[in-house]
Each structure stands twice: as structure tokens, then as C-alpha cells.
Nucleic acid binder design. Structure first.
Lengths: 202, 202
DNA sequence: AGTTTTTAATTAAACGATTGATTAATTTTT
DNA sequence: AAAAATTAATCAATCGTTTAATTAAAAACT
């Protein structure tokens, strides 16, 4: 792994754990195992590193839902794909999503615009899928298409943002259990599908 | 309003907007309209101010749910009280709750323990209420009592953390609308009750 | 009631430490 | 030989905190 990549990996970890302002360039370069000056050399500044990190790492996730819209399936099957997809990728890259959903509450964050663009696109696609389900009579006519997505992402965020709290909430031993176990991931998927299904379906 | 109070008010606002590390003591004292040294004078340090702020401001909310448990109502009526209560107080003090649910993702935050204690108590009470509903046959036998609370708070957090995004998501004009309008608050309450009701009730 | 004394509140200035960033020299790679 | 990557040292700026001096308020005393 080259220095540039090492910095990005360390940045994702530390920004997730201590926030952007809470991570110094010195701590960051030490964690990455590179010289302090490499941050400026590769990214220009700490802020530009932040922007690059979020832009690069969110890119693979974008438009993932876009492809669902035109699938030849029922609206509910699309919703299942969305829930599975969101749980999978938010569990997989929990550090990145900690960052994203934390910075979302700070209007003047350097990455605020990047995040809002990233999220609102997916939000609108989900909304469209739900409205298609309403029109076809598959979903109840009076469901709130705009609020379903915040419920899905909000629930997942609550679980991944504090693994310690989540595990203790589930009544499990923090030493032998991790919220990132396949078991608990499927548990959450099942719950979300059941929750949203009972709300949407007739 | 005395200097101590002015500092707490300014701290709540700025910590919510820019985070703890993102707020300097100088910016803070300026916003509060007091001398820089007053922070140390009244609170000892910036970190102690943070702890005091969160401890003092979360105190009124604590044990609010505790009283619901023993009410002589149906389990669902208790859930309605919980949803209404949570939406009301999180809308009322959105700055504080921005802070709380942001810091929850940072294990080594100075206020992490305070927050976890604050949250987990309420979580357990909600879980107990749901389990009472299951036992009495009012709720479905296979509902996930532990995950309902993360869904409720998670959804509310998603809405209040970024008013701009929420408003645009609802297809409204950011200039004439605020997510904190009574109208949208009731909208969210209605949605959450409908969502949780269809999931819990037989 | 008026004066003095004591305590509390507030101020400007300064402290050392750490911050993000840059420099110029050196090593490595091409 | 040229370009790219890496290094240690240094920059000014900002950080949280403390100091010592000053003002305001409260308490004590005659």
C-alpha cells in the first residue's frame, strides 16, 4: 500500500473515531506510518484530504439504488433490496458512515455539500419507488413516502454508531459478541423488512 | 442572565453547530459576550464545561419515561406517549440532541459515559413496556422489543440533524418553511405512531 | 446610615503547547 | 540524469489555560 492510500485508511479510521477537528495531522501521519508532510504533498491540506476521502469512498455507493427503480419486480421486492443493500454497505464501511451521518448535522462542514448530494439522490429514488407502489395499489394509499428512508438509515445509524451501546441493549456480552456479526446483521435486516412491510403493505 | 448561563447557552449552540473540538474558547466567549477567562472561572476547563452542559441539560429529560411504565393504560397508549414525548423534547432542544447523538459515535468523548447512561435507561424502559404488551397479547408475539427505540430516535435524529435536507426532502421551500413548524412536528408524530403501530399491534 | 472591609466577578495580557502547513535537503525510483 | 517520493526542521497562528490587576457587589462595622 502506497503512502497516499495509507493516509486515506488512517484518516477514515481517525475521523470516524475522533472527528475531523479532533484528529491532528501529526496523529494522522503517525497512524498511517508516513511523514507529516505527505498529507500536504498528496492532498494539499487536511481539509482537502477530508473532501477527497469522502468523495472517493462514497462514489462506489452512489447510484446503487438508481438501478433498482427500473427493475421488473414488485415495489416491495425493491424495498427489500434497498434494505439489504443499506444494511450491508453501512455495516461494511461503518467508519465512513459514522462520518457521513455525523457531519450531516454541521451545515458548515467542509464535506456538507458532498454528503447532502450523496444522500438526497438515494432518498429521492426510494421515494419514487414507494410512490410507484402506491400508484399500483401494492402499498397503502396514505403512507409517507418521504419519511421511510430516514427511518431505515436512522435505525441502522443508531446501531452502528455505538456498537457498545447496541450490544448491551440486546442484552449480550460485549466481550464475546460484536454488532458486526453476520447474525446480528441479518437480525437487523429482518427487523427492518418486517417493520417497513407492515407499514407499507396492504 | 448571568455570565455562567450565557456561557452554557453559547456552548450549546456552538458545540451543536461546530462540534466540541471545532469550537474554540475564544469564539465561545465572544458568542456568549463574556471574557475568555470566565470559562475557566466558572467551569474549570472547556472539557468540564462540556460535561456540565450535557449533565445539566439532560437531567430534566431523564426518568420521564420511567413514570409511563406504571400507568394504568394499554401498552400502545404508553407507546404513543413515548413517541409524542420524544418528538416534542427533541424538537424543543434540537441543539442538545444533535450533540448527544453525534458524540454517541465517539467512544472516547468526554461526555460518552454521560450520554450512554442517559440513553440506555430510557431504552430499557421502552423495551419493558413493549414486552408487557407482548405478554398481554396486545402486541404481536415476535416483535423486536430492543430495536423499536433506535427506530424512533433514529428517525427523529435524521429529521432534526439537518433541517435543510429534511425540508428539501419533503419538497418544501426552505425560505418559507421550517422543519420545526408545529405542522411538521405533528406530521412526524403521526408518521411514527402509524409506523410503530402497524409493526407492534395485532 | 455611611464607611470600611471582604468577597465575588471581570478584565487584559501573557504562558507554553499544539496546530496545519511549508521549506529545503535527501533518498528513491524511473 | 530527471522526476518523484520522503525526510527533519521550522513557520506563524491558534489553541486552552493562567496570571495579576481591576472593578463591582456584599458584608461588617462604627
Amino acid at each position: 500500500m502506497d503512502a497516499r492510500q495509507k493516509i486515506l485508511v488512517a484518516a477514515e479510521k481517525l475521523f470516524a473515531e475522533h472527528g475531523f477537528e479532533g484528529t491532528s495531522t501529526r496523529t494522522l501521519s503517525q497512524e498511517a506510518g508516513v511523514n507529516l508532510a505527505m498529507i500536504s504533498y498528496y492532498f494539499g491540506s487536511k481539509e482537502d484530504l477530508y473532501k477527497t476521502l469522502v468523495t472517493e469512498r462514497t462514489a462506489p455507493f452512489r447510484d446503487a439504488i438508481e438501478s433498482f427503480v427500473s427493475l421488473e419486480t414488485t415495489a416491495w421486492q425493491k424495498m427489500e433490496l434497498i434494505i439489504d443493500g443499506y444494511v450491508d454497505r453501512m455495516f461494511e464501511s461503518s467508519s465512513l458512515h459514522k462520518i457521513i451521518y455525523r457531519e450531516l448535522s454541521m451545515d458548515n462542514s467542509p464535506i456538507y455539500e458532498i454528503i447532502v448530494n450523496h444522500i438526497s439522490k438515494n432518498m429521492q429514488n426510494v421515494r419514487r419507488i414507494i410512490e410507484m407502489g402506491i400508484e399500483s395499489g401494492e402499498f397503502k394509499p396514505d403512507v409517507e413516502s418521504q419519511l421511510v428512508m430516514p427511518t431505515i438509515t436512522g435505525t441502522i445509524v443508531q446501531v452502528i454508531k455505538s456498537p457498545t451501546l447496541s450490544i448491551s441493549l440486546l442484552g449480550l456480552d460485549p466481550k464475546t459478541n460484536s454488532i458486526f456479526d453476520e447474525k446480528h446483521k441479518n437480525h437487523l435486516k429482518k427487523y427492518l423488512k418486517s417493520l417497513i412491510k407492515s407499514y407499507l403493505l396492504n
